[in-house]
């Protein structure tokens, strides 16, 4: 078996708004990862409507979505969901989009259409500051660093197993 054949086609999607404090957590995560991505892994930022990602993830073996959430947990708390196995709990990724369709709805839309990727993992980072123009809070920034390190480790372990 060649190394080429074992490369996982992986898409990492960061969701958020750069101008709303901790809401930018998903964007910060994909920016942290860039420059040190395994072969076959690409990133994408979603700053508005998410409906386009159903088309974007076609052909990928594995999709990772990272978004901020506001569930009442402590700032920086990390949630992980296997979205192929079941719906992302609404109380975590609440839907209140503008003229757009949000992540949780897009995942359910794709499930209904039979267009989920083989693997879809959603990470949600608990935010605390969402006001206009605010920077990402310290706790969330640490959580982003920690998740970036965790993902690199996981991918490296998987890659070692496959090779």
């Amino acid at each position: 078996m060649t190394t080429q054949a074992t490369v996982i086609r992986r898409l990492v999607i960061g969701v958020g708004n750069d101008f709303r404090g901790d809401d930018a957590a998903g964007l910060a995560l994909v920016r942290r990862l860039r420059g040190s991505l395994p072969n076959g892994t690409v990133t994408r930022e979603v700053t508005g409507d998410a409906a386009g990602i159903i088309e974007a993830w076609q052909g990928f073996d594995e999709v990772v979505i990272v978004d901020a959430c506001s569930s009442g947990e402590e700032a920086g708390a990390l949630f992980r969901f296997d979205a192929v196995g079941g719906a992302v709990p609404e109380q975590v990724l609440r839907e209140c989009s503008t003229h757009a369709v949000g992540i949780a709805n897009v995942i359910e839309l794709a499930r209904t259409l039979g267009r989920l990727p083989p693997t879809l993992t959603v990470f949600a980072i608990e935010g605390t500051v969402f006001s206009t123009g605010a920077p990402i809070s310290h706790d969330v920034s640490l959580a982003v660093d920690s998740l970036a390190a965790q993902l690199r480790q996981e991918w490296s372990r998987v890659q070692r197993k496959r090779t």
Partner: peptide
Amino acid sequence: EDAIQIARDHPAVVQRALQLKKIGN
């Protein structure tokens, strides 16, 4: 209630929407 329910009953309509949106994107 939402597009997910349309997709259940009229998947071709929602697929058309996604394809249209994709070309705009």
